[in-house]
């Protein structure tokens, strides 16, 4: 029996990971995922464990190489989108990425910003990043993705204040402003969370490695 659930995570890293693990604890194993959908099949409760990796700052080939490496360690992997892209035709600009990762094509690295990894639960924690320096690196790149999303939302709001730029009615414009601002705030929450995490880790890193 399979079961499909629709979900969107503003906290795509920890939030999504916790949810997948709670599904696995209740006996649902991820079978496939779409943009907003997750299809599960029944399995023994607590048999599998999930971790989410952010690869949206990597170019498609680098992300592919990394995925191959993770699979060579025996993890099962899925790719997942985060919907934080600014698009023009088939090309997407990911301002938060590095180098060639900034331009993502579809099909290609676009909509594959995340890897969902599955391993059979073996009693050891499923941590992908284990030293402070590496944790800082990954959380910084996640924070950058959120910061750009927030910036874009406030940018869009600002655009609506340009006089005579659009023929839409005042009500429509206020509606757009409200939606965009709410999205901005929703992205700002995880942005703030990862900012706190980064600064805490930075302090730790002066003492520990």
């Amino acid at each position: 029996m399979s079961r499909t659930v629709f979900r969107y995570f503003f906290d795509f890293l920890d939030g999504q990971e916790k949810w997948l693990n709670s599904m696995a604890a209740r006996g649902y194993r991820l079978k496939k995922c779409g943009k907003l959908s997750y299809t599960f099949e029944e399995c023994m409760p607590n048999k599998y464990e999930y971790a989410i990796e952010f690869v949206g700052d990597k170019s498609y080939s680098k992300a592919r190489e990394y995925r191959d490496f993770l699979e060579s360690l025996g993890y099962r992997s899925f790719t997942k989108n985060i919907n934080l892209n600014f698009s023009y035709g088939k090309l997407r600009w990911r301002p938060y990425a590095k180098g060639m990762g900034q331009i993502a094509a579809s099909p290609g690295g676009f909509n594959r910003e995340l890897l969902i990894l599955e391993k059979t639960r073996d009693g050891k924690p499923f941590d992908l990043h284990t030293d402070i320096c590496d944790k800082l690196r990954i959380y910084r790149s996640v924070r950058r993705a959120y910061a750009w999303a927030v910036l874009l939302m406030f940018g869009l709001t600002a655009v609506t204040f340009i006089p005579n730029a659009s023929s839409a009615s005042a009500d429509t414009i206020w509606g757009i402003r409200a939606v965009v601002l709410i999205l901005g705030v929703l992205f700002a929450v995880p942005a703030a969370k990862y900012t706190t995490l980064v600064s805490r880790l930075r302090k730790e890193s002066r003492v520990f490695e």
Binding site: L70, D127, L128, H129, D134, R137, I138
Partner: peptide
């Protein structure tokens, strides 16, 4: 005592 995460290992 030390269990390396896959991502950390890959980066290193």
């Amino acid at each position: 005592r030390v269990v390396l995460g896959a991502g950390t290992l890959y980066g290193a």
